[in-house]
Write a protein that binds this DNA or RNA. Sequence first.
DNA 1: ATTTTAAATGGAAATGATTTCCATTTAAAA
DNA 2: TTTTAAATGGAAATCATTTCCATTTAAAAT
Lengths: 143, 143
Amino acid sequence: MRNAPEIIRKAGLKVTPVRLAILRLLSDSVRPLSPRDVHDHLMEKFGRNGLPGVYRNLEALAESGILFRIPGFGRERRYALCPNPDNPHQHHIICISCGRISEIEECRYHDGMMVGGYRLLSHAMQFEGICGSCLSQTNHTRS
Amino acid sequence: MRNAPEIIRKAGLKVTPVRLAILRLLSDSVRPLSPRDVHDHLMEKFGRNGLPGVYRNLEALAESGILFRIPGFGRERRYALCPNPDNPHQHHIICISCGRISEIEECRYHDGMMVGGYRLLSHAMQFEGICGSCLSQTNHTRS
DNA sequence: ATTTTAAATGGAAATGATTTCCATTTAAAA
DNA sequence: TTTTAAATGGAAATCATTTCCATTTAAAAT
């Protein structure tokens, strides 16, 4: 993570130990984390930590484009560091084996365009697969 | 809805009044419904109805490809009748004004193909927009 | 038509994620 | 250093979803 304090400040948020720890944690994690994961980590690190704060922070950071939300991943939310916060156009693929997530570039949709008679306002895509490294480890040649 | 009893039977499920009512309800609704919506309807219709049954039925019908789940629509699940249960390749766009959902045909992905170094196992897309009829009613010319 | 059986149902209670409330603390502006 | 709005944490509330279990019922077998 390049410059966490500045990133937080730019988002109009105060730079707090909790937020720094959250960004550091997510930056060290190859897979998206749930509020509970984050809370567990903060409890270890600080001895105490409130779940409501975790939810507020994750949501605030996601709102600012620093994190993004992975929807429909079990029943709990998951968040990951946005690989490229400047590019508003992000879709990701998750490895169901190791949890790694990567960005997918190509996308022909952009909000505002017409799609099937609708004016598109937002779009999201979720891909699940087996990443290259997991593919080579076991024989996932066919699903 | 063409032939609800047969559709249910083909799915390997028993034909029950509750299931017929659920399919009829969803078939009459232009927008996807939550378990709670369905439960409310069944309470009105039958005087009594158990939430667990609603969850089980919606999930079973979705599992059979008769319904599909709309993820990430607020915090509760929503289900809608599958416009084309034979086509396994379905993506939908929802009108945020009236709730209408329509199918989107074109999709270049198919499970099993390689995407960004991953072997694709599943993919989902969600689109939100304003449908043609809502567009013409108010001036949604620009979002 | 009757019996049989596995599936479906509904009510109460449990679970688990997320949120609200509120008093206290703290980052950062003045 | 003072001030102030934002951030925090704990307890309790909320809300969707699930579990458990006894009862009912669709439909297969007789």
